[in-house]
């Protein structure tokens, strides 16, 4: 971190937390079953236990994250398993309504 400077507030908060040795404490916080908080950022919850440091709006960079499998338990990974997940939603800003859940419906 010595040669890196935070560019925005989120990075600054993270750097401060790291400086104060709070990083393990904040990232170790567990959310509820099946939610992820520690994938920097998490999907449901951020490392501080809130939502302000999530990717927001998540549609803004959704495919930049689903393509490299960032939250494969929550969001269909487009690199290995669901390459066509966004075929009806090429622009996530406009087309997010066409994204569908991937588990077969017959439970």
């Amino acid at each position: 971190m010595k040669h890196l400077k935070p560019l925005n507030n989120k990075a600054l908060i993270l750097e401060q937390a790291a400086a104060e040795d709070r990083l393990e404490e904040v990232v170790a916080m567990s959310s509820v079953a099946g939610c992820t908080a520690t994938t920097d950022p998490g999907w449901e919850v951020d490392v501080f236990g809130g939502v302000a440091s999530l990717c927001q709006p998540m549609e803004a960079d959704l495919y930049g994250c689903s393509d490299p499998c960032w939250w494969p338990a929550q969001v269909p990974d487009m690199m290995s398993t669901f390459p066509d997940w966004n075929k009806d939603a090429q622009s996530s800003d406009e087309g997010w309504r066409n994204l569908t859940t991937v588990f077969p419906n017959d439970k």
Binding site: S31, C35, W43, E44, V45, G50, V51, L54, P72, Q74
Partner: peptide, 9 residues
């Protein structure tokens, strides 16, 4: 926590 939707369920 009110959070975003999930597509892998």
């Amino acid at each position: 926590i009110v959070t975003v939707q999930r597509w892998n369920s």
